[in-house]
Amino acid sequence: MRAVRVAEFGPPEVLRVAEVPDPVPGHDEVLVDVAAAGVQFVETLVRAGRSAAVPRPYTPGRDVAGVVRAVGPGVDPALVGTRVSGQTASSGGGYAERAVLPRHSLHPLPGSVSLRDATCLLGPGLTAVSLVEAARVRAGETVLVEAAAGGVGSLLVQLAKIAGARVIGAARGRKKLALAEELGADATVDYGVEGWADRARRAAGGRGVDVVWDSVGGAVGRRAVETLAPGGRFVVYGIASGSGTEIPGALVYGRGLTVIGYGAGNPVIDHSRRHALQARALAEAAVGRLRPVVGQCFPLEEAPRAHEALTARATVGKVLLIP
């Protein structure tokens, strides 16, 4: 089969397609013919050697959807032919024509959810649902979503609306702001334009917002802190800018702010919890209340272009590889 392999850390060009043997499912595992594999920003950092090192050579990718081709010992053979989504083990393996998934990660898919949409609701769905819970969003509150047109941000806009909140979508450029509006944002601000934080506060009625979801960090995150109303919650879940948000202690103390950290490695999110959170996102999509956004699709051979598009912030929604 064909798979993307990384023999050494470096620029996107180190992503190369090679012929490798089909993986063999072990106990409690299934082999899936991959219809779509999700590309995550963290995978660009690992590839570049800027995040947790992994043994090389390796095949990146965790979020996949496809059709079960074979099952390992301990798995019901009736699953063969089933449309599923799921996440590979932490070592990756998703950027390939076939991938092995642990049985506990599988989500059999209803006909109302496409394989490509399902791929968008694994890592991003888990993160977005978790973030809404972590922020304890209540009906009538106002929230600010950074990167509101991204894979997670686009889901947060919709989930916050489902929770009854007023949503301010923050992004860079008219195309991304238009998508946030299409997804239900009540107001949008371009954080590439000076004075955006003041405009966000005005959009919140002058009082400020109750919740900020910060995935950008750096100068954007620092300005976003200033949009919070007294007693607001600042939820950090990414540093796409390359640096974290510096939050002055005096500001936190003076306004009674709560800072909440989130990480994919949070030990409270075990296998069963992870599966349940993803299932909630899939259920919302199945009934038409949550719309996953497929931004760009690339063939396996163009994995370098997919990584370049992500790092250049040139994408909306989720980026997929199609074997």
Rank of each mutant, 00 (worst) to 15 (best):
L257E: 07
P267I: 14
V235A: 11
T119V: 11
R313C: 00
R116C: 12
A139Q: 09
V252P: 14
A134R: 11
M1S: 08
G288F: 11
I247A: 03
A203D: 09
P230R: 10
R313V: 00
L106G: 06
V294Q: 09
S241L: 01
A303S: 01
E194G: 10
V30F: 06
V137N: 12
V235I: 15
W196G: 03
V132H: 11
F41Y: 12
L228I: 14
P304F: 04
E301N: 02
V75R: 04
G92E: 02
G153N: 11
R223H: 15
P60R: 03
G49M: 05
F298R: 01
A279D: 15
L15T: 02
V167K: 05
A163L: 06
A78Q: 11
F298I: 03
V225M: 03
T88S: 11
V212A: 08
G249W: 03
S112M: 07
E146N: 14
A3K: 05
G81I: 12
N266I: 02
G254F: 01
D186V: 01
A70V: 04
V293I: 10
G217L: 03
T127L: 06
D210I: 02
G150F: 13
V113L: 08
A70R: 04
L155R: 01
V64W: 15
A18C: 09
E43W: 12
A306V: 00
P23H: 03
A203W: 10
P124H: 02
R273D: 10
R83H: 13
R273F: 13
P248H: 03
A281Y: 13
Y253P: 00
H275G: 05
I260N: 00
N266Y: 05
L183F: 02
A160K: 05
G169Q: 01
L31W: 03
G238F: 13
S114A: 13
S215R: 08
S90A: 14
A78D: 14
R103L: 15
R289N: 09
V236N: 07
R172C: 00
D198C: 03
E141D: 09
P12K: 08
F41V: 01
G242M: 07
G254C: 00
E301V: 06
L277I: 06
P73G: 12
V259A: 08
T258K: 00
V32A: 06
A149P: 09
R313M: 01
L257Y: 07
G93F: 07
R5I: 02
G93T: 04
G244E: 14
V67N: 01
E8K: 02
A99Y: 09
Q278H: 05
A250V: 08
T315C: 02
G244C: 14
G61E: 00
G153P: 05
A35Q: 07
G173T: 04
A163K: 05
R69C: 14
L257K: 04
L228Y: 13
A147W: 10
V64N: 12
A148M: 10
A250T: 09
R16Y: 08
E43P: 11
E226F: 08
G93Y: 06
R280H: 10
T82V: 15
G206A: 01
